[in-house]
Design a protein around this nucleic acid. Structure first.
Length: 287
DNA sequence: ACGATACCCTGATGGC
DNA sequence: TGCCATCAGGGTATCG
């Protein structure tokens, strides 16, 4: 099993857990060599140097669901876990790189033979290389909205603008706010009593204010609980996430609302399975 | 211009 | 048991 971090459907809390657990192991250490086993998982310069060979890792940052591994010269890579991606720390004692494991696309070997690996069966994730942090921000992170843990109510309200699209679709849009995925959007809308079909422009400033607070609290609680584990997630210390037990609506279609008891409704919205409580989240009529 | 849809991909799952 | 259809969805390309 993976020594560090697997997250199925990694959203902001899961990525933050990966960031923290990996940073503990690799910051301050030199990348001795890089093995690229599947070239098309990397976008940009695919040379060993671009993939951080010879560099000393100085930090791991996160913006929304994306991570950046930054090094002493400023050279960095951006890692997106997609749906099934993971960054796993593997001590040297755990055998040879990628041995017997499928879908390990990149292996970074550190001093003493310890290493970390990018694995992604479905390949919705990827790795992007940048000569420096400014280029990463300019070419990639500037396309994202503010991080969901940092965004303020006024900014979120402005980002929603006068869009008529369903609030669920807007909150999933990483250019509006970075870090939310299907699970946390449904949970957030339930918490705020907002119907997922509500046109974004019709969510009042007051509700956006409450939503912003609820979003921070929800994400913070999930990070605290170790993130959401739907199948086999363990962090660097072998601990599974525990937040799934707190889900109010996600994955509970047809089951009773934990607040009012009525059967939760569901439909596909913005291409995503969406679950809500028809009484706790009234309205939703499009205009 | 905006919003909805198709597609990428593999593993888990359920039906027969 | 094994085969096949179905579903899951983050992000992007394309359609309407």
């Amino acid at each position: 099993m993976c020594g560090a971090t697997i997250a199925r459907m990694p959203e902001l809390p899961e990525v933050e857990r990966v960031r923290r657990s990996l940073a503990e192991r690799v910051v301050g250490r030199r990348v001795e060599r890089v093995m690229l086993r599947r070239a098309d998982i990397v976008e940009g310069d695919r040379s060993p140097a671009a993939l951080l060979a010879g560099r000393v890792i100085t930090g791991i940052e996160r913006h929304g669901k994306q991570m950046a591994i930054v090094t002493d010269t400023g050279r960095c890579i951006c890692v997106h876990l997609g749906m099934t991606g993971s960054l796993c720390y593997e001590p040297a004692t755990r055998g040879e790189k990628g041995e017997g494991k499928k879908h390990v696309h990149v292996v970074w070997t550190l001093d003493a033979g310890d290493r970390f690996e990018f694995r992604d069966p479905r390949r919705f994730g990827g790795v992007w290389t940048f000569p420096d942090r400014d280029t990463l921000v300019r070419d990639r992170w500037s396309l994202l909205g503010r991080d969901a843990l940092a965004i303020e109510a006024g900014e979120l309200h402005a980002a929603l603008g006068d869009s008529r699209r369903p609030i669920k679709a807007a909150l999933l849009d990483q250019a509006v706010v970075a870090g939310l995925g299907n699970i946390y959007v449904d949970e957030l809308l339930f918490t705020c009593g907002v119907h997922p079909l509500t046109p974004a422009r019709r969510v009042s400033a007051a509700v956006v204010e409450a939503m912003t607070r609820a979003m921070r609290a929800l994400l913070a609680r999930s990070i605290e609980a170790g993130g959401t584990t739907l199948r086999d997630y363990v962090d660097a210390n072998g601990q599974a996430g525990g937040f799934q037990s707190q889900h109010q609506v996600y994955g509970r279609r047809g089951e009773g609302c934990r607040v009012c008891g009525i059967a939760l409704r569901s439909r596909v919205l913005a291409g995503r399975m969406t679950v809500w409580c028809p009484t706790c989240q009234p309205g939703g009529r499009k205009r």
